[in-house]
Amino acid sequence: MSTTKRNGGASFLRSLLNAWSWLFLILILAFFEIYAQTQTGSTFLFRVYNLQSISVAASQILLLALGLTLVIVAGHIDLSIAFSTGFAAVAMALVVRAAGDDPGLAMVLLALIVGLLAAGIVGVVNGWLVAHLDVPSFIGTLGTYGIARGAALIVAGGATVSIRSDTVRSFGNGEIWLFPIPVVIAAVLAIGCHYLLAHTRFGAHTYALGANRASVERAGVDVKRHLMLLFIISALTAGIGGLIYTGRFSAGAANAGEPILLYAVAAVFIGGASLTGGQGTISGTVIGAFIIAVIQFGLVFSGLPPYWQFVAVGLVIIVAVLVDQSKHRVTGDRS
């Protein structure tokens, strides 16, 4: 009812809650470093190989999570990214394979474009379902999750499409200075998505859409077109993840993105997004992806059974939601 009064304590607590994911990331890095120093006399953090492995794992998650962040900020969800990734990976691999052993650069480029188009189709269908047919995005993209999965398996003949191409292999495994190419691509896309969400009218409309659809509609924004674009962006970033998968493993697999879906969704929510929309940032999602990647790699590194990663990531998701709720309590939001 009344104006929110901010006192010192609450605003300190609030900045603490806003920064919790950073603190948490530092905490787990410190944990694994101390573990390495005391248990094995080695280092966790100060070895290039470890940092590269963590970054590659984080970039895999990010390629699904970046576009998803935009969709979630707008108050929707995209589950089909798991198989936009797989569909793109398979489509790319099929084109490379059809070109024979060691195809030229032109064929590889064509394969990349075909892979992106395959993912783009999934995005257009999602956008059409949600924007024009008013299908709730959870249901609509669950449908296309199944359709894209089936389509990828059908065109792949139910198997992994393996290829032989040095060009493709170096695309997925090369390094630019010390940075693996997948990491460089994910970083460039992260900067692009950050710019889009934080600094453009498109981003402002995305936040407004997540908070109150009527506000953007009455402001004369073409909401249908906006939703369509969001789902296309989401499918394309996931599709790029599929292209990198094919590059890294010299094979296109329909289930390339499936194990990452949960982590991508988790990264977005750990990064401060809300299921109801209207909040979330790309930098938050990047931190979220790194938290998960550090947990994944750190558990393998420390010799614990890797299955603990599922437990650990699950716990972090729940903590993220609890933090978000207490944030609302501290600020006394009206929403």
């Binding site: 402002a204 409309h205 936040y207 908070a211 009527a214 924004v221 929403s335």
Partner: peptide
Amino acid sequence: IYQDLALADNLDPGLNLYLGRE
């Protein structure tokens, strides 16, 4: 101006003032 005001609650007054014409 409708009863629900059609504001985007998560944005600042500036963006609400300029919504659609930023």
